[in-house]
C-alpha cells in the first residue's frame, strides 16, 4: 500500500469532541479514491493530516515509512517531493508570474535541461488545457483557470519521479471552481494520471461526479468512516440519507447512475 492510515484521530484545541476518531484507511496504486461527506466532517482536515500540516494521533505511513521519517533529512524530503504532490483548494500567489512560470516551479531547479523543462511544461499545460494561458499573468486568471494551472504544476512535479517509482497525488476539491466541461476534463485527466503508477486521493463534493470517475468512495461523517467501497455500492439513497441527512432519488441514464 502506498499510503496507510491507522488509528488516526484529529482533535482541534478547545474542541469538545474529536473531529475524526480512530480512522484506518489504506490507498493502493492506480486507484482514484474520492473522499466525501457533509461540510465540516473532516475531509480537508484528513487531507491536511496526510500532507503533514496538522497534528494528529495515530500513524500515517507513506511508501512504507512513517511520515516523520521522510522529513528527517533534506535528501529524503527531496526524494519524497518528486513522488508526492498536493493540489490545494485555493492558491494565493500575489506576484506576477506567468502561468508558464508557475508550472515551471513544479520542476524546480533540478537536473533537467532548459529544453526538457520547456517540453514537460508544455506537455502538462496541454493536458490540463491551460497551454493557451501560458503567457497570461497568474494573478489575473479566474479561479478555475488558476486551479488548472496549479494542477499542471503538481503533475509536472510528479513527472520528476524515477521511472517505475510509485506516486501519491492529493487533491483538495479540484473541481470546486471549474465549469461543467472542465470538471469532467480534469477528473478524466486525474483517472489517466492514476493509471501512471499513482494513487490519487481527492476530496470531492459532487457525489455523481465522484461516482462516475472514482474507483472507490470513502464517506466520512460524525468522526468515522461511514462507508467505503465501490461507487455503485455507495450511491444508495438510504446510505446517502444516513450520511448527509438528505434523501435523493436514484436514476439510471444510459448505464450511468445518478442521485438527484
Amino acid at each position: 500500500m502506498l499510503l496507510e492510515i491507522s488509528d488516526l484521530s484529529i482533535q482541534y484545541p478547545r474542541a469538545i469532541s474529536p473531529l475524526l476518531e480512530n480512522i484506518s484507511l489504506s490507498f493502493a496504486c492506480g486507484e482514484v479514491t474520492a473522499l466525501l461527506g457533509p461540510n465540516g466532517c473532516g475531509k480537508t482536515s484528513l487531507l491536511r493530516a496526510i500532507s503533514g500540516e496538522l497534528d494528529y494521533a495515530g500513524h500515517i505511513h507513506l511508501f512504507g515509512r512513517t511520515q516523520a521519517d521522510w522529513y528527517r533529512t533534506q535528501q529524503d524530503h527531496r526524494a519524497l517531493a518528486r513522488r508526492y504532490g498536493l493540489l490545494a483548494q485555493h492558491s494565493n500567489l500575489n506576484f506576477a508570474f506567468t502561468s508558464r512560470e508557475v508550472v515551471q516551479l513544479g520542476l524546480g531547479p533540478g537536473s533537467l535541461s532548459r529544453v526538457e523543462q520547456g517540453e514537460r511544461v508544455e506537455h502538462f499545460m496541454q493536458r490540463a488545457d491551460v497551454w493557451h494561458l501560458r503567457d497570461r499573468l497568474f494573478p489575473s486568471l479566474s479561479g478555475g483557470e488558476k486551479q488548472r494551472v496549479q494542477l499542471a504544476r503538481v503533475l509536472s512535479q510528479l513527472s520528476l519521479a524515477e521511472p517505475g517509482e510509485e506516486k501519491i497525488l492529493l487533491l483538495d476539491e479540484p473541481t470546486s471552481a471549474l465549469d461543467l466541461k472542465h470538471q469532467h476534463q480534469v477528473l478524466a485527466l486525474v483517472c489517466e494520471v492514476a493509471g501512471e503508477n499513482t494513487a490519487v486521493i481527492a476530496v470531492l463534493h459532487d457525489l455523481n461526479l465522484a461516482a462516475r470517475y472514482a474507483d472507490r468512495m470513502v464517506m466520512l461523517g460524525q468522526g468515522r468512516v461511514q462507508a467505503d467501497g465501490a461507487p455503485a455500492a455507495l450511491l444508495q439513497p438510504d446510505l446517502v440519507e444516513q450520511v448527509y441527512g438528505y434523501r435523493g432519488q436514484l436514476v439510471n441514464v444510459s448505464g450511468h447512475s445518478a442521485l438527484l
Binding site: A88, S91, N92, L105, G108
Partner: peptide, 20 residues
C-alpha cells in the same frame, strides 16, 4: 532563490516541493 520562489506558492506547497 529557488526555494524562495517555491515559498511564494504557499508554505505547504513549498514543503511538498521539497523545501525545508
Amino acid at each position: 532563490a529557488n526555494d524562495l520562489n517555491a515559498l511564494l506558492l504557499g508554505e505547504s506547497e513549498a514543503r511538498h516541493l521539497g523545501v525545508d
